[in-house]
Nucleic acid binder design. Structure first.
Lengths: 219, 219, 219, 219
DNA sequence: GGTTAACCGAGACGGTACGTCCTGTCTTAGG
DNA sequence: CCTAAGACAGGACGTACCGTCTCGGTTAACC
């Protein structure tokens, strides 16, 4: 799973590659549905590439226009701001999000989840994009909305993991899954982005074990 | 403790007020040590105010110069970039960090810590500054360094809390304090900044309880 | 005569109102002759209104399209440039040009002519249009052609005035009428447009008298 | 006189060459008097060249910036609009205006004046500039002001011509010089710019003779 | 209490990007 | 056949900051 991500990540950004965006909706019969500019894919790709290369501040509309071979006005016609453009670019990326893990044990599932998070945050090019976007969510309302949505969506997908765990008796029934996910994701964020520390290899199992014990103990 | 913070936070940003910056170092005997421009305090104050008002992207050197009544060149003479200026401005703030809590129980101490973190992230004006800075650390090396330092420092100060807890038998001796702090801080960050959710009032005790159980269980 | 112009000028631009453009030529029997878009009148009116409001530089094809309720492409289909459009718009206006005066004396006729010219140049809305068009003829070949034509036409119409004057013995037979017209029109242009001076009320008779004396003296 | 103009006009625009602008005022001792950008001369030259080449509409600030090797912002720092820039550029030109003629007879003086005017309006590069500026005065308030000033100045300089003529008994004492100048200049303008007719070689003497007769006859 | 070196104000400048307006061309659907 | 609709590349607009520079003046420590 995370493996799939890693494999692809070495050659091209899969998680955030928007090149399939609108694949099926763009045309229907002969009629343009007008859901974006003709070169939407190139624009999104350029935006994400530039974001990974130069960060949110270094990302400019003009730069995106130039790299995607589109006129600046075309971008402004469709998105009012950098944040909105980036938000749209991430839409296409989201659909490629990996399925939630099902390893048979809660421990395994959560380790897979945390592994995915840390990989996302540390392996280029997804790391550049993810870190920039999450960091920039601080400044841009549009991005914040997308980030929120991303987390909500992520949590919804992990729900079965917890349902199964409760069924297996691995967790008390009144466990708060959001708290567990936040603890895991938050610890990774602090360690990787704020502390800028390398992750030793037992960070993932140790963190998961701690959180799990906490979940069981307080149940 | 947290009370002290709150009290102050309601009227003025204490944690990040740089106006006492260099208070003791600026002069030594009668000699100017040349460690900054004459109006350093005004500059730092202006920088932090503007940061809180407009966020990192909206913060401009020209704006700082104008508000602080200083010429633009003066700022450039001393700091090469926005990040560096902000880093310097935060230096003075750090020294006002509150003493680590000592409530007599680990639970109480950690609740005080988490409370402080959430207050910092949610109560203006510190919230604007803290969130902006931490978010911008993504883009700026100078800020990243300061954030790292901040976390390291924070951890060092909390150390006695854990030492005492171990002495009291509340924690196993081989506990990793950094992990616990990261779990707490990270959960708050995810909840407040990324998810943009309001914190219900038992978020703090519940999170601390979970983390604590985890720490004990895995010991 | 000039009175007719004045009367109309106070309420609506008659001299340059194109709303009757193509009235008779547009259809022949039941067949469309394809000599212009369906909303030609609206387009011309819009063009002239906008010209009077914002001058030649401020006049844009998009503005005309919007005001006339026509798509931009429709205008481009029929006229290749702003100048050409304006030229066409002026065509309809010309047909409303007033008949040359016949007051019984050359002096009277020329005063009527000069009066008409000054009225045209000073009374809105014709003043806005006339001054703009004549000024813009400097930049646009199409407009220049129309202006030329206008002057040639004007001269042709005044011809009877001079013929009658020669017959009456008021002018030598070898008088150059064009020179006289140019002197009158030119003086008005310089005074009104270049010098921006108000015209005192004996400007017209005095100028005509001077020119007439010149014509007689050199005959 | 007019000869001088012509001679120079064949090689370089003298009447409108601004390259000596501010020659003496720019610096005083070592202090910059701040009366314009450092490359004011280049800017003015570029502006006038481009005006002659492309007309007023085709003249762009960006074009001027590029040709004069200056940044666009530098131009905007000093002049708020195209009209203002052009106005300033003409200031330097004006100071090179030729002295009024003194041929000994009014006829000769006025022929020289009209000759100068027609030369200005027909001989490149001054023709391009003069015609464009006078035409554009229609659209731009700043230019209009300069044109007014130019004419007032021109008239003031011609004053001695008329004073002498009255003294010589060539003109009645109550002659209106402005009217005569306007008749001459206006006729030239109509003929050259509005009618676009070539000037046959006796246009100048014939026109002057007519106007002179008129002046004498009405005196 | 005058010297001198560090510091500052002022502001011009080349430059990048902003976000907007208009140009003139095109393509496609529809009356 | 004409028109509506509108996307598009392109160019210029006028503005805001960037970071650099030069050049007088001002401070203030130290003789």
């Amino acid at each position: 799973m995370a493996g799939t991500l890693q494999d692809n990540a070495t050659q091209r950004c899969v998680v955030f590659d928007a090149s399939v965006y609108l694949m099926s909706e763009e045309r229907q019969g002969n009629t343009r549905r007008s859901s974006g500019p003709r070169k939407a894919e190139e624009i999104f790709d350029a935006a994400l590439e530039l974001l990974a290369e130069k960060g949110y501040e270094g990302l400019t509309i003009e730069g995106v226009a130039q790299r995607s071979g589109v006129n600046k006005t075309t971008i402004y016609r469709w998105w009012p701001s950098k944040g909105a453009l980036l938000g749209a670019a991430l839409l296409g990326a989201r659909r490629l999000d990996l399925a939630p893990p099902d390893t048979g044990s809660l421990q395994g599932d959560l380790e897979a989840l945390l592994h995915m998070i840390t990989t996302l945050l540390t392996t280029p090019p997804s790391s550049g994009i993810a870190v920039s976007v999450l960091g920039a969510a601080t400044h841009s309302t549009e991005l914040a909305a997308h980030v929120q949505e991303f987390f909500a969506d992520r949590l919804a997908r992990e729900q079965p993991v917890f349902t199964r765990a409760v069924a297996r008796g691995e967790l008390p029934a009144d466990t708060d899954p959001m708290l567990l996910v936040d603890l895991l994701a938050g610890a990774a964020w602090v360690r990787v982005v704020l502390r800028r520390l390398p992750l030793d290899e037992d960070f993932v199992p140790r963190t998961v074990r701690t959180v799990l014990e906490g979940a069981r103990g307080t149940g």
